[in-house]
Write a protein that binds this DNA or RNA. Structure first.
Lengths: 332, 332
DNA sequence: CTGTTAGCGCGTTCAC
DNA sequence: GTGAACGCGCTAACAG
C-alpha cells in the first residue's frame, strides 16, 4: 500500500516526501540540520510540506542508524544531599542548552544496579555522568552500550576520564586558617569511610593538621547527614577541642544545633567549626559555617567540554581537576 | 552478507538466532517475556545462546514497533526549591521500581519550551509528569507524541488527569490553630501570584481568616525563596501583627532569621509564624516552623497508579486529590 | 545534485 | 510449532 495512512499516527518522513513529490532520501536531506546537497527548489517544497503536516522526526528511529540519541545519563546514589540541589539544576540546564536531554538514574540500593542499568533505556545513552560510587570505572563502562563514561565520583582508572575537585587546596587553606587562630587540638566528624573520596579527604586533613602541629583528639564517624552530625555531637566520643572539622556542611549544621550555646551571636566561644561543601544553606543566618567549596561553573564547564568534544580526542586530558577554596564565615 | 559481524558492535537477536540455529522469529519469541509458542528444546538453545553472547535487546529499536520505551518525562521549572529535594528522590526511585526510567526536563526559561520539548527525545516518552506550570494542559499535550500527560501543577482541564494536594484542609487547620491562640491580625508573605495554585492558596487563607475574624493587615509578595522571605521581612510593608502566614517554608525561614529576637528559645514572643511545605529542614533545630504538608507516599502512589494503569481506563478518576495536614511546631 | 537500494534491530503477521 | 517476509521511521551508501 502507499503510505497515505489514515490512522491517528503522526506524519512520517514518507508522508512529507510524498506530499512534496520527492524521494524519502531527499526529504531526509532537506530536513537535516547539516547542509547536504539538495536543490533549492526541492528543499523548499520539502520544508513546506513538513511544516504543513507538522512533521517531527522520530528521534528514536533516527538513532537506529546514526548511533546517537542525544541522551545523557546522570547516575547518582540518591539526591538526598543538599549539595546535590545546588549542582544538578545548573548541570541539567547546561546539558539541555547543547541540545541533549538527561536520563536521571538513581542507583540507590546499589544491589542489582548493573542488571537494572543494562535493561533500561539508559543503556543506550551517548554518555554517562557517574556521580555515584556504586562501581569501579571498568565495571561502569560495561553498563552502557557505546557511551562515553565520565567519572565524577573521585574514582578513575586511567581509561575513563574524570573530573574531580582538588580538595587539597581548600583543606590546606582551612587548616591553615585554624592554625593561624591558635587552634591546637581538633576533632573530625567524617562520612562514609568506604568512599575513596572520603578516605583521601581525611588523609589530607590529617597531614595538614600534622604539619601545623594540631593534635587530632577524636574522630567520629557519621554519614554526611544532619542527623548524624547531631548524633556525633551528642555521643560519648565528643571531647573538648579547639576546632571541629566536618567533612560535610550538613553534619556541621547538626553539630552547631547541638552546641548552639557555643556560638553566642554566631561567634565561636568554645570551639571553631569548619564544614565542607559550601552549601547555599551556609548563607542562611542560622548556619554561618566556614566551609570549603569549588567553582560549579568551572566544574560543569569541564563536564560540558567532555560532552561536546569532537570525536575521539581522548587520551587528551583524561583526569581533570577543579580547584577548591576555603570560605571563611562566622563559625571560624 | 551473513550476519556474523566482526565489528565491536553488541550482539543482535540475529546473532543469537544464528548461534542457536533457529530463525530470528523463534529467537524473538523465546526471549519474549510473554509466553509465545516455542518448543522447549529451541527455547533452551536460544536462551543459552543469548546468555553466552551477553545479548541485550536494543530497547530503542524495539520501541519502533511496540510504541513504548518505558521512559517517563518529569517536567519541572527548576529544582532550586528545597521542597523538590524531598519529593523527587522518592519519586524517581518508585518509577524505577516499576521498570521505567526518567527523563528529567528543566523547562527553566519557559520561552521556547514547546520547541525544545518537541525536538528532544522527551517527545517520545510514554508518559509525562508535569510539575512545571509553563503551559496549560491542552498545550502540554501537544508536546508529547503519544504520551499520557499527568498534570501535577494544579492545572487541569478535565481531559488530562491530575493529582493535587488538597490544600484547603491544611490551611483550615493552620488558621484555626492561630485563631485558637488568640491571633487577631495577620500578614501574608506570598509567592508568584501568576501561579493558579498560589492564587487559590491565598484565597483559601483569606476566607479562613475571615471566618475566624482574623484581620489581614499586610500582603507581601515574594517568590518562595529564602532570600525573598528576608527581603519581605525587612521591607517597609512589614507591620506588627499577631501572626505571619508564609506560602513557603523557605520564605518563613527568611522571616525567622530577620526576626530571631522575636523567637527567644524558639518560642514566639511577638508573632506566630506559619510556613508551607513541611520541608525536612523544619525538623532542624534552627527552623522549627509550623507548616502544612501532605503524605508524599500517598501522592507518589497516585502518580504510580497513573503510570501503571492498564490500557485506557481513563475517564475514571480524572482529578485526584491528596489531603494536606497542619504540623504544629515551636513557632506557632 | 538526485533517486534507488539497503540496511539499523526488532516484533509480528501469515502462510506452511 | 516454525520461518519467510514485511513494517516500524529514518539515513548511509551507491549508482545515475
Amino acid at each position: 500500500m502507499e503510505s497515505s495512512r489514515k490512522g491517528r499516527t503522526s506524519p512520517t518522513i514518507t508522508d512529507v516526501a510524498e506530499l512534496a513529490g520527492v524521494s524519502r532520501a531527499i526529504a531526509s536531506r532537506a530536513l537535516s540540520h547539516e547542509s547536504r546537497p539538495v536543490s533549492a527548489d526541492k528543499r523548499a517544497r520539502v520544508l513546506e510540506a513538513a511544516e504543513k503536516l507538522g512533521f517531527k522526526p522520530n528521534l528514536l528511529a533516527r538513532s537506529l542508524t546514526t548511533k546517537t540519541v542525544n541522551l545523557i545519563a546522570v547516575i547518582v546514589n540518591h539526591i538526598h544531599d543538599f549539595s546535590d540541589l545546588d549542582l544538578f539544576d545548573f548541570l541539567i540546564g547546561e546539558i539541555q542548552s547543547i541540545g541533549k536531554q538527561v536520563i536521571f538514574v538513581r542507583v540507590g540500593s546499589v544491589q542489582r544496579a548493573e542488571e537494572f542499568l543494562r535493561n533500561g533505556v539508559a543503556y543506550h545513552v551517548d554518555a554517562a555522568l557517574v556521580f555515584s560510587d556504586f562501581a569501579a570505572a571498568a565495571d561502569v563502562r560495561k553498563m552502557f552500550r557505546n557511551a562515553a563514561v565520565l567519572m565524577l565520583n573521585g574514582m578513575h582508572d586511567g581509561t575513563s576520564p574524570s573530573v574531580v575537585p582538588n580538595e587539597v587546596i581548600g583543606i590546606t587553606e582551612a587548616v591553615a586558617d585554624a592554625a593561624g587562630k591558635g587552634v591546637a587540638t581538633a576533632a573530625m566528624v567524617t562520612g562514609r569511610i568506604s568512599s575513596p573520596v572520603e578516605q583521601s579527604r581525611i588523609a589530607t586533613y590529617k597531614s595538614e593538621m600534622k604539619r601545623h602541629g594540631i593534635r587530632l583528639v577524636a574522630e567520629l564517624r557519621g554519614d554526611y547527614s544532619y542527623a548524624s552530625g547531631r548524633q556525633m555531637a551528642q555521643s560519648s566520643g565528643w571531647t573538648d577541642v579547639d576546632a571541629v572539622f566536618c567533612t560535610s556542611d550538613a553534619m556541621a549544621m547538626g553539630v552547631m544545633d547541638v552546641h548552639r550555646e557555643a556560638f553566642p551571636h554566631n561567634k565561636p566561644a568554645r570551639f571553631r567549626l569548619y564544614g565542607f561543601d559550601n552549601l547555599s544553606l551556609t548563607d542562611f543566618e542560622a548556619y554561618p559555617i566556614s566551609s570549603i567549596g569549588y567553582d560549579k561553573k568551572a566544574y560543569v564547564g569541564e563536564i560540558l567540554r567532555f560532552l561536546t568534544r569532537t570525536g575521539e580526542v581522548a587520551g587528551d586530558r583524561v583526569d581533570v581537576t577543579v580547584p577548591t577554596f576555603f570560605v571563611s564565615r562566622a563559625t571560624s
